[in-house]
Design a protein around this nucleic acid. Structure first.
Lengths: 194, 194
DNA sequence: TTATAAATATGATATAGATCATAATTTAAC
DNA sequence: GTTAAATTATGATCTATATCATATTTATAA
């Protein structure tokens, strides 16, 4: 789905400053959200306040469809990680787009499959693997998205929130991975080496 | 998608006896599998042999699309949990069905969203919640699918494999849940009370 | 450039759940 | 109905990681 197309079709752009909440658990879904610029994270929060990052969405992507499509209340918060411009597309308009935009339903299917793939991978990790293995798996997953020589712009806290571990554990285990030569670090930054 | 329709369209039915492996990790996807009868479980297995149940598929459902659609090798095993009759639909034929069967792409989208919803819920549980909470969550989820007064036909081992816990832990925690009145059991069977 | 905040680091201790071992029930098979 | 196999049960330890406490380093703002 092309964001520019949405804009020329007259959909309004809404601005969310960094840390603004776009929706929260318990709300009934009314829109699908297309990101014109910025970045959004989807997190669930446990009773004692621990966050788990369910996903991160960037410019050009959309989020919020699953709850809307299965007609259930949101399970997660979505929060702007940076100042963001977002186009909320109302339910019926979204279904129109799916039906009438050539290639959109296939694109949606592929998007959903990609997310399922990621979640299956993480479920296996959380269910069966120890801290070190879990970390190596997401780190390699994240490194895939950046250029050789670049560093991960993800804090230890964020790694913790993606793996269900605690910061201290992440810090210690990242060091172990680095010592073992399984990842490369420079001044604490995790680098894509190849 | 209607299984009878597939059969009258001439798709062949393949029989898998209980415990037969339909596909395994590392294989390249070539089919989507429609279940005419029986039951299939999708499991990932860790190096030390611990199983995690990613999903269970029953008569009338289909499985195996995500890896095929995102063009990646399977991550999981799928294994017949009962004697099963399954219709493998080759990749290009599956894409034909998606494009040409009215309502099928919407059905697929809904199916994918339901699975995403389940996986998001389980990720939150595995990342943030303790054994007792995790168990209560899947037990309630599973009880939703059966009639009031009926009992769950799921062993403690299967509950363990769905939650990433160990049998002994599941046995102990189910007892605690029962003592607290949060679930109902009779002779070890978990009963849907309301 | 200095002050302040955020992120990373590291040690000491606690604990949920794994692991190991063995027994008691329940279910299935003959 | 009896035997065998599977499931559930329960106790005793062990261990990975959480938790708590306090530094040190790096980034940000004034």
């Amino acid at each position: 789905m092309d964001i520019q197309q949405l804009i020329s079709d007259g959909f309004a752009i809404k601005k969310y400053p960094k840390d603004a909440i776009i929706y929260e658990p318990g709300m009934s879904p009314r829109y699908v959200y297309f990101i014109k610029s910025g970045e959004v994270r989807m997190v669930t929060v446990s009773k004692d306040g621990k966050e788990f990052i369910q996903g991160v969405f960037k410019t050009g992507q959309y989020f919020g469809e699953p709850a809307l499509i299965v007609n259930r209340k949101y399970l997660a918060y979505t929060i702007a990680s940076k100042d963001s411009e977002i186009i909320p597309v109302a339910k019926n308009q979204f279904f129109n787009l799916v039906e009438n935009t050539p290639g959109f339903s296939i694109n949606l299917i592929q998007t959903l499959c990609n997310r399922l793939f990621y979640k299956s991978m993480m479920l296996e990790e959380l269910a069966n693997e120890k801290a070190e293995h879990r970390l190596l798996t997401i780190i390699n997953y994240l490194l895939n998205d950046i250029e050789t020589g670049e560093s991960l712009k993800v804090s230890r806290q964020e790694l913790a929130d993606m793996t269900g571990l605690r910061v201290e554990t992440v810090i210690r285990e990242v060091k172990i991975l680095s010592d073992k030569g399984l990842i490369h670090t420079e001044k604490g930054k995790i680098i894509r080496h190849f």
